[in-house]
Design a protein around this nucleic acid. Structure first.
Length: 445
RNA sequence: GACCCUAUCGUCUAGCGGUUAGGACACCGCCCUUUCACGGCGGCGGCACGGGUUCGAUUCCCGUUAGGGUCGCCA
């Protein structure tokens, strides 16, 4: 039987990083088995669902590269979808729920109470077979013993999550339910519902949750809980995906960075770890740097230019060769694309922004040294990195000082920052005119 | 409160009865580099606790503790 898995998020306006990982694991399993990855939007709560909220999910999955085989093509609930088992929005599946609840009512497996429809839940413990956790026997909690039956359809006619979730999985032919462990306890209800419909439930795989670094649960408000954070802070999607793979799953062999192609080959449900993982931004940061350094140049330029645009720098005003040369000096240095602000903004500004007071940054003795260097730079026969280095070192010898006393002030004068790309490389890219102008500005203090 | 899941360095993990408990991130030194980053070398640091089972437990069982989850006319 062909594997059919689904990611079924509720459009809340953001895509939780844990949800992204759930989607990833579903996608990986589908790709590993040659199965079908389905995206279903659980928009039963019409009041707070908007097309924009759905778009956040679609955009997030697309950004991660988790393309679905069946599901919506746009965020519009009545819009186009692909796949034969639609609609893929729960708000469009009302007849299915109605038909299913009537079947239950007809066999007295459900009943009306106070205008709502309840399911006759078994009083016996239910065994949940789980590919990750093993066989779990769920007994009723004391509250449930008081009232084991649960609502299927609210008195306002709206079906509830447990019901629509099961009906859709059934109608869509879902074979494996891969979801967060927060659903494990409730799976007893789902198993009972499947049996009431006369079918065996799909295989379950409850994956551990992602917690904050301090072990607390990641709520909407926690920084880093939303996938958007990583998009905005300049992470590369392939790095985020790779990092997410490492949370609750391991490729073994002491491997950390590996292409998704290999993950697809190695990934399987029984090997998923059973304990929760904490999200360590440090490791993602490191991994992202690895990806940036090994990234294809054109993709790197594209992402870097995009990051510059985010901070209001329009690179279109500059020649392509200049942009590329400037970004080349940063490729081995930055770990995050948001770092282009520190490492490259000065290439694209008319004047440097000093973070500290230029007057104290460039006291008279520093200025006199810079003045000498300016002369040497102006007279230099060429303006390439190697020549610049020779020229600067000659001035250092002439002045009888340590090179740091000249190197640091030039960097500061040219870029406005104490850190950045290699000095001689950046001076070469900036070019003689800009460099002399920036030195002149400092000398006029 | 009841029910369920979980427990290896600070973090992610390898391990699946006998290992000097391995790797990665982070951190700390040194080297490289007159920035930063990369790279190289070294260091710090772990089997939550208590009982069993066994010749022998990080590994198997039970308990405790701790963390997480669930018990909605939320999803």
């Amino acid at each position: 039987m062909k594997v059919r898995v689904r990611f079924a998020p509720s459009p809340t306006g953001f895509l939780h990083i844990g949800g992204a990982r759930t989607a990833l694991f579903n996608w990986l399993y589908a790709r590993h088995t040659g199965g079908t990855f389905i995206l279903r939007i659980e928009d039963t709560d019409a009041a707070r669902n908007t097309q924009e909220a759905v778009d956040v999910i679609l955009d997030g999955l697309r950004w991660l590269g988790l393309h679905w085989d069946e599901g919506p093509l746009t965020g519009e609930a009545t819009g186009p979808c692909k796949g034969e088992r639609g609609p893929y929005f729960q708000s469009q599946r009302r007849e299915n729920y109605q038909r299913r609840v009537e079947a239950l009512l007809a066999r007295d497996l459900a009943y009306e109470h106070d205008g709502a429809i309840r399911f006759r839940m078994t009083r016996e413990p239910i065994m949940i077979p789980d590919l990750v956790v093993g066989n779990v026997t769920r007994e009723l909690t004391d509250r449930e013993k008081l009232e084991p039956d649960f609502i299927l359809i609210r008195s306002d006619g709206q079906p509830v999550f447990h019901f629509v979730n099961v009906v859709d999985d059934l109608d869509m032919g879902i074979t494996h339910v891969i979801r967060g462990e927060d659903h494990l306890s409730n799976t007893a209800k789902h198993v009972a519902l499947f049996r009431a419909f006369g079918v065996e439930p799909p295989k379950y795989a409850h994956i551990p949750l992602i917690l904050n670094i301090d072990g607390t649960k990641m709520s909407k408000r926690d920084k880093g809980a939303s996938l958007t954070t990583y998009v905005e802070e300049g992470y590369a999607p392939e790095a985020v995906v790779n990092y997410l793979c490492l949370l609750g799953w391991s490729p073994k062999q002491n491997r950390e960075k590996l292409p998704i192609r290999e993950v697809i080959e190695l990934f399987d449900l029984p090997q998923i770890l059973r304990h929760n993982a904490r999200f360590d931004i440090n490791k993602l940061h490191w991994l992202n740097g690895e990806y940036v350094r090994e990234m294809d140049r054109d993709r790197y330029y594209e992402l870097a230019v995009h990051a510059l645009a985010r901070i209001g720098i329009d690179t279109n005003k500059f020649p392509l060769d200049y942009i590329k040369a400037a970004l080349d000096t940063c490729k081995e240095k930055i770990k995050l694309f948001s770092e282009v602000k520190i490492f490259a903004d000065f290439y694209f500004k008319d004047a440097v922004d000093f973070e500290t007071d230029p007057a104290t940054e460039f006291p008279p003795e520093v200025r006199s040294r810079l003045a000498r260097l300016r002369e040497a730079f102006a007279a230099s026969p060429a303006f390439d990195a190697a020549t610049l280095e020779k020229t600067l070192k000659a001035v250092v010898v002439e002045l009888g000082i340590k090179s740091g006393l000249l190197v640091h002030p030039v960097r500061m004068a040219a870029t406005g920052r104490p850190v950045g790309p290699g000095l001689y490389q950046l001076l070469e890219v900036l070019g003689r005119d800009r460099v002399l102008a920036r030195l002149d500005r400092v000398l006029k203090i």
